[in-house]
Nucleic acid binder design. Structure first.
Length: 172
DNA sequence: CCCTGATTCGC
DNA sequence: GCGAATCAGG
């Protein structure tokens, strides 16, 4: 039931930029459909803060394409962090972890920092936070560094030896 | 498959 | 007026 009180709450939450389902959860006893329906009947479908703000596609700058020198470009890390923030289902702890990686000295590469000269051996699960590429210098005319090229291009070996040697050399 | 808002239409 | 079902999309 839409009491004056609940309608006021709806107006407030909606203008605060909460999504219909979030508003419904907050109010309780109604579904997001009910909220959307009410929002339309009240004529306030335009919202102050769009739930999915249209952000211009970040350009691949020369800065971002520069070869890695010991640690990731802070701009690239911040860009990645912003992507994560925009996805409501990503936990805050995970965002913190991604940002913390910027402080580690290890060389890391994202898709934005790859050049013809960086190793593109994938590390981690593509699409999941923390996924990156090896990023070390690639051998000339190879997409991989020396170590990963060895893993990528394994010669066919005799059955007798293949099982053991393969398994051992495949650890990343 | 998770989510978003928009629209329709029987109640 | 209400909201479930459905649509269209990220």
């Amino acid at each position: 039931m839409w009491t004056d009180e609940r309608v006021e709450m709806l107006k407030k939450l909606w203008s605060d930029g909460l999504s219909a389902s979030q508003v419904a959860k907050q109010l309780g006893g109604v579904t997001r459909n009910a909220v959307i329906g009410k929002v339309h009947r009240l004529g306030l479908s335009g919202r102050a803060t769009p739930s999915r703000p249209a952000r211009p596609r970040p350009q691949t700058t020369a800065r971002a394409m520069a070869p890695l020198r010991g640690r990731p470009d802070p701009l690239v890390v911040e860009r990645r962090a912003e992507e994560l923030r925009s996805e409501a289902h990503i936990e805050r702890a995970e965002i913190a972890r991604i940002e913390a990686e910027a402080l580690e000295p290890a060389q890391r590469a994202t898709v934005l920092t790859l050049t013809e000269h960086t190793c593109k051996w994938p590390i981690g699960d593509p699409g999941r936070p923390g996924f990156h590429f090896c990023g070390r210098g690639a051998d000339s005319s190879s997409p991989y560094c020396t170590e990963h090229a060895r893993l990528a291009y394994q010669p066919v070996q005799p059955r007798r030896n293949r099982d053991r040697t393969r398994k051992d050399s495949y650890a990343i």
